[in-house]
Amino acid sequence: MMFARRLAFRLATTAVTLVGVAVIVFVVIRVVPGNPIAMMLPPGATEADIARLRALYGFDRSIAEQFLIWAGGVLQGDFGTSITARRPVLELVLGRLPATLELATLALCIAVVLGGSLALAGARWRETRTEAAVDVTNGIGLSVPDFLWGLILILLFGVVWPLFPISGRIAPALAREFATNFYLAEAILRLRLDLLGALLAHMLLPALALALPLAAIIAQLLKQSLKETMHLDYVTLARTKGFAEGRVIRAEALPNAVLPTLTLVGVQFTFLIGGTVIIERLFSYEGLGNLAIDAVINRDLPLIQGIVIVFAGLFTLINLGVDMLYAALNPRLRRG
């Protein structure tokens, strides 16, 4: 009951947030310099041509009027038509969204596994050289941003040791095998290990570039909160029961230490999705981020609006998910 009410409340605030985001984006991209009409016409177009096109796309009306027309369409599921691609924005965005979601999810999984393992190792062998090594690793992970990791990985594993493909989501010939745009999920569900291997080879480097900074943050924070938990009485009591240190950390310390880390991972995961914009560009990965950059370069206003709304919706959904997960993992917040 409590849970359902909280969920309903959060969904309501989410709607308010999205309206706010829509207004801001709509106004900002119309106020900043750059004109989509100018991009569409050849040099030497007449004033009359420009005026005709402006009227066609509705840019001759006031911003408020344009917004109401657009918002009315959005409420009916019509996000407008891309100026450059001449196709519905929703179709373009939904076509690209799975690629970005899969990349971000893979990056998150890598970050959690990598960061979690480092944290556990650092806590298990605390105050030894192992912990010092973990700290140094975290320092490196934290001080290099994701796009730089992308360049480093391309250089190392694409150029110096060409082990992985450095461009695209999958070889175009293989792309025809898929019925949906969720390539990774589909390959796993259909147990097509050949496709899965090809996908992962393409996704590993960009996902790693996105994951490394987040892994370092997780490792640092989780290790610290594990170490704080290790001093508590229930951990000591578990040691007297005959449990080995590793088991004491996993069964006693981890369920408590993971809570503060979870909050941060939620916030950082949204940054990671923001990072996909540049990383997808670097690796020519056909996701939403790459589409967003093209949209901005071409001043494709309807497409930019659609992409930003989708990103904003995604972020609020992630925050909602983290909140719910936090409640599920912390028995003191659970109510029967």
Partner: peptide, 25 residues
């Protein structure tokens, strides 16, 4: 040592408020 202590000994700790793991039943 751990195995022997776990089998033969037990501790009744000082503070019942901190000696039970809040995340476990």
């Amino acid at each position: 040592r751990r195995a022997r202590i776990g089998r033969l000994c037990a501790l009744i700790p000082q503070d019942p408020l901190t000696a039970l793991n809040p995340a476990r039943r």
